[in-house]
Design a protein around this nucleic acid. Structure first.
Lengths: 240, 240
DNA sequence: ATTATAGTCTAATTTAAATTAAATGAGGAG
DNA sequence: CTCCTCATTTAATTTAAATTAGACTATAAT
């Protein structure tokens, strides 16, 4: 057993060589996990990717399972944070459907361009062992809450078509986004096209047509202010 | 090595006790594969599920990999056949968007209610080894072709919104459907609700609003005949 | 210059799973 | 009844990977 308590950076000026190695291992694990799946993730592959020998991993993580669990946790946590920040940056009176637009865009951008972690967490949600899964569900739930709120707000504002079961619609949308990591590849089409198409698909898939919406929104007293400008603002604030 | 060539049913009155055992192993493998992933699928688990001892598997399949490959192949092949049959059963002049409706419904019903195979094939597409993946891609492609055609036809008929990249839109829709297996559970909501919501989401997500469509369809000379009745007909013909 | 400590390595050890070998039961053909 | 073939079992064998033990190296404080 290593001297310091594993699973935590030891002394930690939080970016010491040690901290960077730990991060390198975590990155490597995310890389492997996202491609090979839970059972297929070998410490030897992680080590190779991180340019160390396999036993060195144990200096930082007490077991394979602990390492994988941290990867998955970090995956959803960072994704949630990324999307949450983008939403928080929107003006308070942003139209609910524009907020959904923003979430769609940021989820896709983070998942596809930035992070193996998100992909690892998403792809393996279904095949990790029971206990890990249970703990993971808590974090997953937090991200789910964001979307639940987004959809709920749209519904309250009368912007959600009435024939949609909100929970089902939300999961279908998240599925479309999550699955993108399975087929998208930077070499065969720009991320912008994916984002643009996804936003349009979701907006029209969920939303009532403009004329109907007018009535509903007025009825519930929710304003349609900042309709188009808000979405642009979000993108600019996080990617400009 | 077994006497008969493995990987094929031996003598085969095609439902002999032997044939049934083989099918039982295949079912078991689909069950395990869909839950544990490629690397996590142990022959001992498959054997337990099939109520035999692990080495018995080798009487029917020459290796673990061959067994898994057949499961995945069968998964997509049967899904494709199921959807294709439903589409073929539609009247020839069915509106393209109604055909998509039908495909959405049948894909979901087959995947969620009928078959571990589809789930196994879908979930593991990304994590099987290179060679198996390559062969699998061929079969996946055949199913993809069906959807490519569906979307293309909708586009030709002027029923597809212009701001959608057809390929991206198609993959997003398939993602929404494929992912459903990750979250849907018969105990927490009826399949009918999922199907209904998905159909609505997809139709409105892809389609132009009715008034615009009229013009476009007329322009390309495609009739809107059998608009609503067709979708009902499809459901009835395969599930009624 | 010496030594303590963090960080890493090489060389076991252990364990789990696939695969193979060889033996056994069950049912039909002679 | 006895033999043959199919189907399946139990008992090796092999291999791959996680984990552990113990040694080595660099750095920096004394």
């Amino acid at each position: 057993m290593p001297r310091k308590s594993a699973d935590k950076p030891p002394v930690d000026p939080s970016d010491s060589k040690s901290a960077r190695t730990r991060e390198r291992i975590l990155d490597a694990a995310a890389h492997v996990l996202s491609r090979k799946g839970y059972a297929g993730t070998r410490l030897s592959d992680v080590a190779e990717q991180a340019q160390i020998q396999a036993p060195a991993i144990y200096y930082y993580f007490s077991s394979r399972e602990v390492l994988i669990e941290e990867v998955m946790w970090v995956g959803v946590a960072r994704l949630r944070q990324h999307v949450a920040e983008a939403l928080d940056a929107l003006p308070a009176d942003t139209d609910p459907m524009d907020r959904i637009d923003t979430a769609v865009e940021e989820h896709l951008r983070y998942q596809l361009a930035i992070s193996d972690f998100a992909t690892a967490a998403i792809r393996n949600a279904g095949q990790v062992p029971e206990d890990l899964r249970t703990r993971q569900l808590a974090e997953d739930g937090r991200y789910g809450d964001i979307w639940r709120t987004l959809v709920q707000d749209a519904q309250k504002a009368g912007g959600l078509r009435a024939d949609l079961e909100p929970r089902v619609a939300r999961m279908l949308v998240l599925g479309a986004l999550n699955w993108a990591a399975e087929w998208w590849n930077p070499r065969q089409g720009s991320l912008d096209v994916v984002v643009r198409t996804a936003k349009s698909l979701v907006r029209h898939g969920l939303g009532v047509a403009a004329d109907q919406e007018l009535g509903a929104a007025r009825a519930t007293g929710v304003s349609r202010a900042r309709r188009t400008t808000a979405a642009k603002g979000s993108t600019a604030s996080t990617h400009g």
